[in-house]
Amino acid sequence: MQKGLKGIIAAETAISHIDGDEGKLIYRGYEINELNKYNFEEVAYLLWHGKFATDKELKHTKEELRKNRDLDQHLIEILTSLPTNMDMMSVLRTVISASGTSDFNWKPTISQAMKLTSIIPTIIAYRKRNTEGLPFIPPRQDLSHVENYLYMLNGIIPNPAQVKALESYMILTLEHGMNASTFSARVTASTESDLVSAITSAIGTMKGPLHGGAPSGVIDLLNEIALVGDAERVIRKKLDQKEKLMGFGHRVYKTHDPRSIALKETLLELVGQDEWLDLAIEVEEIAVKLLEEYKPGRSLYTNVEFYAAAIMKSIHLDPSLFTPTFTASRIVGWTAHVLEQAEDNTIYRPQSAYVGKLKNKQV
């Protein structure tokens, strides 16, 4: 028996593949580094449809995502009535659940997937500004998916370097195999429940710190290095004290995290345009060298959280929005898996091993 179903194959999928030994992540047959030149909408289409869009298909997809950005009035009323001490992931879970009208009856469709993908950034931005006592900034139809998200958060057209960095991060986190939240979505979908119910399950799972935890440790590391002004001194001190260096190493990837490599390639194109992105590149080079010195043969490289933290710092995103932003990208992978589950469905019904006591039978 494998606790937590570790190593157990629970489904066949054509959506993505992870090779932890070789450090590869594949979306629909394409290695992740091949996808860095595309935009969010193009890669989302690939995951939903299994192929890249033609110009006409891509135009339609962008139009659908844009026209679905506005929230229905009943969702706005729910958003503004929720307790101020409710965290953003709980807000997302509640509002997405409340969107489950008759429009989302079984069987799930790509149109439904696009609707949920469109409204999650709006929910996050609306809630953030509402709790800060600021007016809501309506979505703009002339901005891309990622650009519009940043615009709604802050009310200004974002720096192109910041858009490029965040878009790369979101593309690289759209999908990552049969992780806990994806499995949760597929289990719910396997009962022939609707798409909204499956995504509500996934969001509830993502909320857990063992799955969707924010890279706050990396933020602390970068802040400390920026304050001290000497990356090598800070990192050596931590390694001398046997502290874990946050943002390095991964449970699945035994070598380089391919998402981290792809993010770094993007950030190298942006050198000189943002101080936090520049700092991250400098810190990685020093940290990898010192980790090999202190822990030879361990092959500890940056994971996707390392550069994600730098990007979040760059765009001035509050740590409370890290996991919700992760959710705004992973919604594409979740919906793709629900659609795939519906195509050849069998309800999930694993067994458990009873380890309790047996009462003696009375003679």
Results as ranks from 00 to 15, higher is better:
Phe183Met: 12
Asn223Asp: 14
Ile235Gln: 02
Trp276Val: 14
Ala262His: 03
Lys207Glu: 09
Gly247Trp: 00
Gly272Trp: 06
Glu275Cys: 12
Glu275Asn: 12
Glu243Gly: 03
Pro296Leu: 13
Asp220Met: 13
Val271Arg: 08
Gly212Arg: 02
Ile286Ala: 04
Leu290Tyr: 00
Ser201Val: 13
Glu269Pro: 06
Arg236Ile: 15
Pro215Ile: 09
Leu227Lys: 04
Leu277Tyr: 01
Ala185Ile: 13
Ala287Lys: 00
Gly272Tyr: 05
Lys242Met: 12
Tyr253Val: 07
Met178Pro: 11
His176Thr: 09
Asp220Glu: 15
Ser184Tyr: 06
Glu232Ser: 05
Gly272Ile: 13
Ala226Arg: 07
Asn223His: 06
Leu270Ala: 07
Asn223Tyr: 06
Ala202Ile: 07
Asp220Thr: 13
Leu195Glu: 01
Arg298Ala: 14
Gly249Cys: 10
Ile219Met: 12
Ala226Met: 13
Ala226Trp: 04
Glu284Ala: 10
Thr302Trp: 00
Gly208Phe: 10
Thr302Met: 05
Lys295Asn: 11
Glu265Trp: 00
Leu267Trp: 02
Gly204His: 09
His256Thr: 04
Pro209Arg: 04
Ser197Tyr: 04
Ser299Pro: 03
Gly247Arg: 00
Thr205His: 10
Val252Ile: 15
Arg259Lys: 05
Ala226Ser: 15
Ser201Trp: 05
Ala202Met: 08
Asp274Ser: 10
Thr255Trp: 03
His176Ala: 12
Ala214Leu: 12
His211Glu: 06
Val283Tyr: 01
Glu192Thr: 15
Glu232Asp: 09
Ser190Lys: 02
Glu284Arg: 00
Thr200Pro: 12
Met178Ile: 14
Ala280Pro: 08
Lys289Leu: 13
Asn179Cys: 12
Pro296Phe: 05
Val271Phe: 07
Arg251Phe: 09
Glu292Phe: 02
Ala226Pro: 14
Lys244Met: 15
Leu239Phe: 09
Ile225Thr: 05
Val218Ala: 09
Ala189Phe: 02
Asp220Val: 14
Gly229Cys: 10
Asn303Val: 10
Ile281Gly: 02
Leu279Tyr: 08
Met206Glu: 07
Leu239Arg: 00
Lys207His: 10
Leu267Asn: 01
Lys207Val: 09
Arg233Gln: 11
Ala280Glu: 09
Ile281Asp: 01
Thr255Asn: 06
Ile203Arg: 03
Gly212His: 03
Asp240Lys: 05
Ser299Thr: 12
Gly208Asp: 07
Tyr253Met: 11
Glu192Pro: 03
Met178Asp: 09
Thr182Pro: 15
Met178Arg: 02
Ile235Val: 15
Tyr294Pro: 14
Ala202Arg: 01
His250Asn: 07
Gly247Phe: 04
Leu227Ala: 13
Leu300Arg: 01
Thr191Ala: 15
Ile286Lys: 02
Asp194Gly: 08
Leu245Pro: 04
Leu222Gln: 03
Glu285Met: 10
Gly247Met: 07
Leu291Gly: 10
Lys207Arg: 08
Val218Glu: 12
Arg298Pro: 14
Ser216Asp: 09
Arg298Lys: 10
Leu290Asp: 12
Ala231Asp: 04
Gly249Gln: 11
Glu243Trp: 01
Arg298Thr: 14
Gly229Asn: 02
Ala189Ser: 11
Leu263Thr: 00
Glu192Ala: 11
Ile261Cys: 08
Thr191Cys: 15
Ile286His: 00
Val283Lys: 00
Thr266Lys: 10
Ile235Thr: 06
Glu285Gln: 09
